[in-house]
Protein backbone atom coordinates (compact mmCIF):
# COMPACT_ATOMS: atom_id res chain seq x y z
CA UNK A 1 0.00 0.00 0.00
CA UNK A 2 1.31 3.43 -0.86
CA UNK A 3 2.10 5.79 1.97
CA UNK A 4 -0.47 8.47 2.43
CA UNK A 5 1.59 11.57 2.56
CA UNK A 6 -1.41 13.81 3.35
CA UNK A 7 -1.65 12.06 6.70
CA UNK A 8 1.99 12.69 7.40
CA UNK A 9 1.79 16.28 6.27
CA UNK A 10 -1.17 17.14 8.46
CA UNK A 11 0.53 15.31 11.29
CA UNK A 12 3.59 17.52 10.93
CA UNK A 13 1.40 20.58 10.84
CA UNK A 14 -0.30 19.63 14.07
CA UNK A 15 3.10 19.18 15.63
CA UNK A 16 4.36 22.50 14.37
CA UNK A 17 1.39 24.19 15.96
CA UNK A 18 2.35 22.50 19.23
CA UNK A 19 -1.17 21.20 19.49
CA UNK A 20 -2.44 17.88 20.74
CA UNK A 21 -2.29 14.76 18.67
CA UNK A 22 -5.40 12.70 18.79
CA UNK A 23 -5.67 9.18 17.55
CA UNK A 24 -7.42 10.48 14.42
CA UNK A 25 -4.30 12.37 13.46
CA UNK A 26 -2.24 9.22 13.48
CA UNK A 27 -4.40 6.86 11.47
CA UNK A 28 -7.64 4.92 11.37
CA UNK A 29 -8.19 3.46 14.82
CA UNK A 30 -11.07 1.23 13.76
CA UNK A 31 -8.93 -0.45 11.19
CA UNK A 32 -6.20 -0.66 13.85
CA UNK A 33 -8.61 -2.50 16.15
CA UNK A 34 -9.04 -5.16 13.48
CA UNK A 35 -5.33 -5.40 12.87
CA UNK A 36 -4.80 -5.91 16.58
CA UNK A 37 -5.79 -9.54 16.03
CA UNK A 38 -2.17 -9.92 14.88
CA UNK A 39 -1.03 -8.93 18.33
CA UNK A 40 -3.79 -10.38 20.49
CA UNK A 41 -2.22 -13.81 20.68
CA UNK A 42 0.41 -12.26 22.87
CA UNK A 43 -0.84 -8.86 24.09
CA UNK A 44 -3.91 -7.48 25.80
CA UNK A 45 -4.97 -3.85 25.74
CA UNK A 46 -7.98 -2.04 27.26
CA UNK A 47 -9.81 -2.27 30.57
CA UNK A 48 -8.46 -5.07 32.76
CA UNK A 49 -5.62 -5.95 30.38
CA UNK A 50 -2.89 -8.07 31.98
CA UNK A 51 0.48 -9.37 30.88
CA UNK A 52 0.40 -12.50 28.79
CA UNK A 53 3.14 -13.74 26.47
CA UNK A 54 3.88 -10.05 25.97
CA UNK A 55 3.31 -7.16 28.39
CA UNK A 56 -0.06 -5.37 28.40
CA UNK A 57 -0.09 -2.33 26.16
CA UNK A 58 -2.16 0.14 28.19
CA UNK A 59 -0.42 3.48 28.51
CA UNK A 60 2.31 2.46 26.08
CA UNK A 61 2.75 5.99 24.68
CA UNK A 62 5.32 7.87 26.71
CA UNK A 63 6.26 4.73 28.65
CA UNK A 64 9.85 3.65 28.90
CA UNK A 65 10.70 0.50 26.98
CA UNK A 66 10.65 -2.54 29.23
CA UNK A 67 9.07 -0.71 32.17
CA UNK A 68 6.25 -2.94 33.44
CA UNK A 69 7.31 -4.19 36.88
CA UNK A 70 7.50 -7.92 37.16
CA UNK A 71 7.21 -8.67 33.44
CA UNK A 72 10.20 -10.78 32.31
CA UNK A 73 11.58 -8.65 29.50
CA UNK A 74 14.49 -9.80 27.39
CA UNK A 75 17.91 -8.44 28.35
CA UNK A 76 17.85 -6.44 25.13
CA UNK A 77 14.54 -4.70 25.95
CA UNK A 78 15.61 -4.03 29.53
CA UNK A 79 18.82 -2.54 28.20
CA UNK A 80 17.00 -0.34 25.69
CA UNK A 81 14.84 0.99 28.54
CA UNK A 82 17.85 1.58 30.76
CA UNK A 83 19.51 3.47 27.91
CA UNK A 84 16.52 5.80 27.90
CA UNK A 85 14.40 4.56 25.02
CA UNK A 86 10.75 5.59 25.33
CA UNK A 87 7.76 4.56 23.27
CA UNK A 88 6.58 7.38 21.06
CA UNK A 89 5.28 7.41 17.54
CA UNK A 90 8.72 7.13 16.02
CA UNK A 91 10.07 4.34 18.20
CA UNK A 92 6.82 2.36 18.14
CA UNK A 93 6.65 2.69 14.39
CA UNK A 94 10.19 1.39 14.04
CA UNK A 95 9.61 -1.45 16.49
CA UNK A 96 6.44 -2.59 14.75
CA UNK A 97 8.01 -2.35 11.32
CA UNK A 98 10.89 -4.62 12.27
CA UNK A 99 11.16 -5.41 15.98
CA UNK A 100 14.69 -6.76 15.70
CA UNK A 101 15.96 -3.67 13.92
CA UNK A 102 15.27 -1.47 16.91
CA UNK A 103 15.82 -3.99 19.71
CA UNK A 104 18.06 -6.59 18.15
CA UNK A 105 17.53 -9.43 20.59
CA UNK A 106 13.95 -8.73 21.59
CA UNK A 107 11.90 -11.74 22.66
CA UNK A 108 8.94 -10.51 20.62
CA UNK A 109 8.61 -13.16 17.95
CA UNK A 110 6.78 -11.14 15.39
CA UNK A 111 8.00 -10.36 11.90
CA UNK A 112 6.64 -6.85 11.87
CA UNK A 113 4.09 -4.86 9.92
CA UNK A 114 5.79 -3.85 6.66
CA UNK A 115 3.04 -1.45 5.53
CA UNK A 116 3.30 2.09 6.87
CA UNK A 117 -0.44 2.53 6.83
CA UNK A 118 -1.02 -0.62 8.89
CA UNK A 119 1.37 0.67 11.49
CA UNK A 120 -0.26 4.09 11.52
CA UNK A 121 -3.69 2.54 12.03
CA UNK A 122 -2.39 0.21 14.71
CA UNK A 123 -0.78 3.10 16.57
CA UNK A 124 -3.97 5.15 16.28
CA UNK A 125 -5.76 2.28 18.00
CA UNK A 126 -3.13 1.85 20.75
CA UNK A 127 -3.10 5.63 21.29
CA UNK A 128 -6.67 5.36 22.59
CA UNK A 129 -5.45 3.34 25.57
CA UNK A 130 -2.70 5.75 26.47
CA UNK A 131 -3.05 8.74 28.77
CA UNK A 132 -6.31 10.19 29.90
CA UNK A 133 -7.28 12.78 28.85
CA UNK A 134 -6.08 11.15 25.72
CA UNK A 135 -5.41 14.22 23.64
CA UNK A 136 -2.27 15.35 25.38
CA UNK A 137 0.62 16.41 23.19
CA UNK A 138 3.18 13.70 22.62
CA UNK A 139 5.91 13.82 25.22
CA UNK A 140 8.53 13.99 22.55
CA UNK A 141 7.29 15.64 19.41
CA UNK A 142 8.98 13.71 16.69
CA UNK A 143 7.60 13.13 13.27
CA UNK A 144 6.94 9.53 12.44
CA UNK A 145 9.85 8.12 10.54
CA UNK A 146 10.64 4.73 9.18
CA UNK A 147 13.55 3.67 11.34
CA UNK A 148 16.24 3.33 10.43
CA UNK A 149 15.97 4.96 7.03
CA UNK A 150 17.81 2.52 4.85
CA UNK A 151 18.21 2.68 1.14
CA UNK A 152 17.86 -0.90 -0.17
CA UNK A 153 21.18 -0.30 -1.93
CA UNK A 154 22.82 -0.15 1.52
CA UNK A 155 21.44 -3.54 2.44
CA UNK A 156 22.66 -4.91 -0.87
CA UNK A 157 26.31 -3.95 -0.30
CA UNK A 158 28.52 -7.03 -0.32
CA UNK A 159 30.79 -6.70 2.71
CA UNK A 160 34.52 -7.48 2.50
CA UNK A 161 35.17 -9.84 5.43
CA UNK A 162 38.92 -9.20 5.39
CA UNK A 163 38.35 -5.51 5.95
CA UNK A 164 35.69 -6.48 8.48
CA UNK A 165 38.23 -8.54 10.37
CA UNK A 166 40.52 -5.55 10.71
CA UNK A 167 37.68 -3.24 11.74
CA UNK A 168 36.42 -5.84 14.21
CA UNK A 169 39.47 -5.39 16.39
CA UNK A 170 37.95 -2.10 17.48
CA UNK A 171 34.81 -3.91 18.62
CA UNK A 172 36.34 -6.86 20.43
CA UNK A 173 37.65 -4.71 23.26
CA UNK A 174 34.02 -4.83 24.40
CA UNK A 175 32.21 -7.52 22.39
CA UNK A 176 33.80 -10.89 23.06
CA UNK A 177 34.91 -12.85 20.03
CA UNK A 178 33.29 -15.99 21.42
CA UNK A 179 29.91 -14.27 21.58
CA UNK A 180 29.76 -14.28 25.39
CA UNK A 181 27.49 -11.70 27.04
CA UNK A 182 28.79 -10.59 30.42
CA UNK A 183 27.12 -7.17 30.31
CA UNK A 184 27.76 -6.25 26.69
CA UNK A 185 25.75 -8.23 24.12
CA UNK A 186 27.27 -10.83 21.82
CA UNK A 187 27.32 -9.85 18.14
CA UNK A 188 28.60 -12.92 16.32
CA UNK A 189 26.69 -15.17 13.93
CA UNK A 190 23.91 -12.66 13.29
CA UNK A 191 22.26 -12.59 9.88
CA UNK A 192 24.20 -9.85 8.11
CA UNK A 193 21.06 -7.88 7.37
CA UNK A 194 20.03 -7.61 11.05
CA UNK A 195 23.53 -6.49 11.88
CA UNK A 196 23.52 -3.80 9.20
CA UNK A 197 20.12 -2.54 10.31
CA UNK A 198 21.19 -2.42 13.97
CA UNK A 199 24.37 -0.49 13.14
CA UNK A 200 22.50 2.04 11.03
CA UNK A 201 19.96 2.52 13.82
CA UNK A 202 22.89 3.65 16.01
CA UNK A 203 24.52 5.65 13.23
CA UNK A 204 21.28 7.56 12.64
CA UNK A 205 20.95 7.98 16.41
CA UNK A 206 17.56 6.29 16.29
CA UNK A 207 18.74 3.78 18.83
CA UNK A 208 20.10 5.26 22.04
CA UNK A 209 23.54 4.48 23.44
CA UNK A 210 26.45 6.92 23.37
CA UNK A 211 29.25 4.37 22.85
CA UNK A 212 27.55 2.64 19.96
CA UNK A 213 26.38 5.88 18.39
CA UNK A 214 29.97 7.09 18.44
CA UNK A 215 31.36 3.83 17.06
CA UNK A 216 28.78 3.70 14.28
CA UNK A 217 29.05 7.39 13.41
CA UNK A 218 32.42 7.01 11.82
CA UNK A 219 31.72 3.78 9.94
CA UNK A 220 30.87 4.13 6.28
CA UNK A 221 28.15 1.98 4.68
CA UNK A 222 30.88 -0.26 3.23
CA UNK A 223 32.54 -0.61 6.60
CA UNK A 224 29.28 -1.61 8.26
CA UNK A 225 28.73 -4.19 5.54
CA UNK A 226 32.27 -5.47 6.02
CA UNK A 227 31.76 -5.86 9.77
CA UNK A 228 28.43 -7.61 9.22
CA UNK A 229 30.07 -10.03 6.80
CA UNK A 230 32.91 -10.76 9.19
CA UNK A 231 30.92 -11.19 12.41
CA UNK A 232 28.25 -13.24 10.62
CA UNK A 233 30.75 -16.03 10.05
CA UNK A 234 33.02 -15.62 13.08
CA UNK A 235 33.15 -19.10 14.51
CA UNK A 236 34.78 -19.07 17.92
Amino acid sequence: MARRSPTLASFALVLAAGAAIAAEDIGDADRGAELFYDCAGCHEVGAGAVNRVGPHLNGIFGRRAGAIEGYPYSKAMARAGADGMEWHLDTLDAYLENPKALVSRTRMNFDGLPEAQDRADMLAYLRIFSANPRDIPEAEPTARADLPDLDPAILAIEGDPEYGEYLSSECTTCHQRDGGDGGIPGIILWPAEDFVVAMHAYKQKKRPHPVMQMMAARLSDEEIAALAAYFATLNP
Binding site: R79, G81, A82, D83, G84, T172, T173, C174, H175, Q176, R177, D178, G180, D181, G182, G183, I184, V211
Partner: peptide
Protein backbone atom coordinates in the same frame (compact mmCIF):
# COMPACT_ATOMS: atom_id res chain seq x y z
CA UNK B 1 18.48 2.35 35.73
CA UNK B 2 20.95 3.95 33.32
CA UNK B 3 23.71 4.08 35.95
CA UNK B 4 23.18 0.40 36.71
CA UNK B 5 23.26 -0.49 33.00
CA UNK B 6 26.49 1.50 32.69
CA UNK B 7 28.03 -0.45 35.55
CA UNK B 8 26.95 -3.77 34.03
CA UNK B 9 28.49 -2.71 30.74
CA UNK B 10 31.81 -2.19 32.49
CA UNK B 11 31.71 -5.80 33.70
CA UNK B 12 31.19 -6.86 30.09
CA UNK B 13 34.06 -4.66 28.99
CA UNK B 14 36.40 -6.21 31.56
CA UNK B 15 35.70 -9.68 30.16
CA UNK B 16 36.03 -8.35 26.62
CA UNK B 17 39.35 -6.56 27.02
CA UNK B 18 41.01 -9.29 29.07
CA UNK B 19 40.14 -11.91 26.48
CA UNK B 20 41.29 -9.50 23.77
Amino acid sequence: ALRKATYEESLGWYQGITSD
